[in-house]
Design a protein around this nucleic acid. Structure first.
Lengths: 156, 156
DNA sequence: TATTGTTATACTCTATAACTATA
DNA sequence: TATAGTTATAGAGTATAACAATA
C-alpha cells in the first residue's frame, strides 16, 4: 500500500525521529481508539477521568478535579451536570466550606467506571501487545516522566 | 509540594497507568516545549513540519503534504501562504499536471529548517536525557508503532 | 478582599461546502 | 465526471470575564 511511501517521506524529512511529531501522532491514534471504547459507555475521555477521580477514596472537590485534569473549572460544570444526570456522581456540600462541592461517585458510578476501566485495560493490553512486561513499564515510565507525573514506583 | 498529592490522586484513580491519559498529558507537556522552541524561529509546529517536507529530495505537492500530515488541504493554504511570504518555500507548477503545485524549499528555507531542526534535536536530547540509547530507541520505536508509522521494517 | 462554582461569551482550531481551473 | 487548490463558513473545544454565594 501507499502507506509505505508516506512513512518513508516522514522519515526522510526527519520527522520520524522528532519526539514532538511522533508523540503527537501516537496520541492522536491512541485517543481515537480510547474514544471509540468509551463511546460504548456513553462517555468521553473527560467523563471517564472525572468519574475515575470521583471514585477515589478521598473524594475531590470540583476545584481539585479541575486542577488534576488541567481543565478549566467552567468546563467541568457541564461534564459534572451530565454525569450527575446519569446518576453516576453526586455533588455534596463540603462540611468545612459551603462554597465547595465534593464529588462522590454513586454505586452505579462505581460499577460503570469498573466496566469502562476493564475495557480500557483490554485496549491497553492490545496496544502494547508487542512489548514485553519490562518494555511496557519502561514506556509508561518514560511517558509519565515526559508528562511530569512522578509517582513513587515500588515494583517487586 | 502539592504536586505530589495530585500525582498520588492520579495514581489512585488508576489514570497513571492508562495509556490514553498518560500519552495525552505527555504530548501536551512536550508540545508546550516544542512550541516554545519553534516560536523562536517564527514557526508553529505545522510550519516546521511542512517546511521539513518541502526540504525533502522528492518535493511533494500540496495534496501529498496534506495527506502526510493528516491536515485538511484547506488548512495548508494559509500555512503555505505564510511560509511563502517569508520566502522559505516556493509553489511551482507541476510539469505533468497543471492543477497541482509542487512545494520546494528555498535556500533560506533549507537554512532555517536546519537551524530549527538543531534546536529541536537539542530539546529531544534534553527531554530524553534520563534514558540510555537503547531505551531511547525503544521509546521512539514504541511511539512510532502506536502512531502506526512503520519505517524500519520492510516485510514482503 | 479572595475563592468556589456558575453563566455567558470570545477565541482558536479544525472540518465542511462550494467554487475555479484543470484533467 | 473527477481532482488540486482555494475561499468562506460552521462547528467543536477551549479560554476569558463577570457574577452570586461564601470565606
Amino acid at each position: 500500500m501507499n502507506d509505505n511511501h508516506e512513512n518513508l517521506m516522514l522519515k526522510e524529512a526527519g520527522l520520524a525521529t522528532e519526539v514532538g511529531f511522533v508523540i503527537s501522532r501516537a496520541k492522536t491514534q491512541v485517543l481515537k481508539q480510547v474514544d471509540h471504547v468509551l463511546e460504548g459507555f456513553g462517555f468521553t475521555k473527560h467523563h471517564y477521568a472525572v468519574l475515575a477521580l470521583a471514585c477515589s477514596v478521598e473524594a475531590p472537590s470540583q476545584r481539585e478535579i479541575a486542577t488534576y485534569m488541567r481543565l478549566d473549572p467552567s468546563r467541568l460544570v457541564r461534564i459534572l451536570d451530565e454525569l450527575e444526570g446519569q446518576e453516576l456522581v453526586r455533588r455534596e456540600r463540603s462540611a468545612h466550606d459551603r462554597r465547595t462541592w465534593i464529588i462522590q461517585a454513586t454505586d452505579s458510578g462505581h460499577q460503570r467506571r469498573t466496566e469502562a476501566s476493564m475495557a480500557l485495560q483490554q485496549l491497553n493490553d492490545n496496544l502494547l501487545r508487542h512489548l514485553g512486561e519490562t518494555q511496557r513499564q519502561l514506556l509508561i515510565g518514560a511517558l509519565l516522566h515526559l508528562a511530569e507525573i512522578e509517582v513513587q514506583v515500588e515494583q517487586r
